[in-house]
Amino acid sequence: MGRYMTRRLMTAIPVVAGIMLLSFLLVQSMPGDPLRMLVPPDLLQGPEGEAFLEAQRERFGLNDPVIIQFFHWVGELFQGNLGFSFHLGAPVTEILGDRAGPTLILMGGSMIVALTLAVPVGLMAALRRNSAFDYTASAVGMSVIAIPSFFTALAAIYIFGVKLRWLPPGGMGQDGFGDFLIHAIMPIGVLSAALFGPYMRYTRQSALEVLNEPYITAARARGASRRLVVGKHTLKNAAIPIATVTIVQIPLLVGGAIVIETMFSWPGTGLVVFNAITTRDFPVIIGFTLVVALIVVVSQLFLDLFIAWLDPRVRIEG
């Protein structure tokens, strides 16, 4: 088990290094001189301006070979410095750090809500294959996959926020937990609706496969109760593909979260990143990409750990 995890960690390192290198090359290939963008234009007038620029270049190490610059950059990264936003005039770490919490709440909350609904429904659909319940669940799953979440978001804001006025149409509540919850219902609801479809279908699919396995028949043949057959044997075996799909979809979820945050004025990274994309604020975009990539790598590690816990065969195969 320890060996298995060490090996997984070891393979994650080159992935992280690769992501860093790619991000750095992106910065390098950015058009324009970063100094010219940062320094006020009046300082750049005349020959003193050129000399000033040259001095600054020397000072910031911009004349160093690219590889040295890369290691400088990596060194800064490890100290938590992701660069400086041109537009917001603040360190990227600060900008993203302040907004990371709400985004994580939105994403994590939606995943939890979607899973707690999708797994039982998918399991039930598999157990009652070709029943009315199965068809209904499949139809609902299909429609939430087919309807884009920005549309669901618009519809929800219009119905619950504008017409019925049951829920606040946007923002994140600041007055205690109750207020926060009321504000969170719609964004989390819309995002988890989008996740529910694929989660439910995968659960149904993998449960159907497991239910066809001889060991399920064998469990029934020794008198195991339905609760044991479904809750123990089926669920644990079916959990492996479900967990994989859940984790693999995280990058997609990030894209979805950006849209939802923008629409509900949720104060997460989504708005900042959305603005950064439209204004080509590269340090923010790259910082965000790097953070997301790291989250994906880390969650992959957790997935591996989880699967190894579920399936003893994985532990030795590595």
Binding site: P214, Y215, T217, R220, A221, G223, A224, K236, N237, R313
Partner: peptide, 21 residues
């Protein structure tokens, strides 16, 4: 009755025993 009065030995124990228990 199953497993108490009448029980069964299946063909392939690799697939008839649950691999995760």
């Amino acid at each position: 009755l199953r497993g108490r009065d009448i029980s069964m030995v299946f063909q392939d124990a690799m697939t008839s025993l649950d691999p995760v228990f």
